[in-house]
Design a protein around this nucleic acid. Structure first.
Lengths: 197, 197
DNA sequence: CCTACATTGTTTGCATCGCCTACATTGAGA
DNA sequence: TCTCAATGTAGGCGATGCAAACAATGTAGG
């Protein structure tokens, strides 16, 4: 078996890919830089050439998470009808689907503990996700399908139920069959709640 | 300064109290059994006489969290009017208040990673919290103030928005002023969403 | 009151971790 | 071709969780 050349080639990308697998397998608590290094056949200190701290790696993971979430939702919205209920339905299912496949990554994304130096880039990605949601609600308001009012406040009432559904489903506090069928109810309740008077 | 007697007296309770302070100060990632032991003036191995693993201590914390959350909500409900909107308002504010004061503890409570041996007692406490919510929604249905339907599914549409609001407010993804004023909107949207047709 | 045992401490050790510094290899650009 | 930047390695430090063996003491029963 040939020994790997001294330069890995693209260790940064490999670390992120393997870290995501480990996140999915074991959760963020068990994610370990040394184990990542072992898995990739490099020394324990090699990851530090690409991510100065463990937290920096986690922040990079959260960043890719927001990028992929935003992309998944955009794709779902493109393939849906143009009414607000149709757009919301597509958005909600894409969001929940992403959460089902990437629960630990989502936790990481919405965790309050990001390092300050990551705030700008990571914050930018989070903001694009937020803006995407605001755009959908704004379009609904323009079409007269969503109640009037401050855009951010109305959007909060749209996305809080989805976020909460995801959290409750993931925590196991809600029975799996209730969670499975309950998404339809949650989406319908959001549509009812923000329907103009 | 007098050396502590060999027996601490009530090390288990002291560990839980200090662990909660540390959770609040630093989050669950930074919670350390050795530091707890140092803070309480015992050796590093002493905590293991009361909690066999760090996870066992975290599970015990989550258990007390559910007990206190359930108690806080019961107290708020007792002091509120009897209509569903009044009961929901009281419940929501108690829940959000608890979350504001105990963000990291709430994360711990709803974290998917509890040890199997803790499942029964911790699960029982979580179930009592769930039942409390189901009771409130059931009473609303009896009074004709909440739409008919499967109780658990209707309750999910009531509590998902609250849970999501808490998560979004805590994560910083939502602007603080939007979060502060947005609770009224979220509560109102829940009432609208589950009003009978 | 004394003894035995259970409860609850301590000491010592192991394996792992994150992070760091100094040094080594090699790829790229001038 | 040479220099420097990028990216590895080796070795070390201080911390962690967990474990086994031993020590101190509180309690219950005879």
């Amino acid at each position: 078996m040939h020994k790997r050349p001294y330069h890995h080639g693209d260790l940064a990308a490999a670390l992120l890919a393997r870290a995501e697998e480990m996140l999915r397998e074991k959760g963020s608590d068990a994610l370990s830089l040394r184990e990542l290094a072992r898995d990739l056949g490099v020394s324990p200190a090699a990851p530090r050439r690409h991510f100065t701290t463990k937290q920096a790696l986690l922040d990079a993971l959260a960043l890719t998470g927001f990028e992929r979430l935003t992309a998944a939702i955009a794709t779902a919205q493109d393939g849906a009808g143009r009414t607000f209920p149709e757009q919301l339905d597509a958005t909600a299912r894409a969001f929940v689907g992403f959460a089902a496949a990437n629960g630990a990554l989502l936790d990481l994304m919405f965790s309050a503990k990001h390092s300050p130096e990551a705030s700008e880039e990571l914050g930018g990605a989070a903001l694009r996700w937020v803006q995407q949601g605001l755009d959908m609600v704004a379009e609904g308001q323009r079409r007269g399908e969503v109640r009037a009012g401050d855009l951010e406040r109305v959007a909060l009432t749209v996305f809080a139920p989805l976020q909460g559904y995801i959290g409750l489903a993931a925590s196991g506090v809600v029975a799996p069959e209730v969670a499975e069928e309950g998404l339809d109810d949650v989406i319908a309740s959001v549509v009812r709640a923000c329907r103009p008077d």
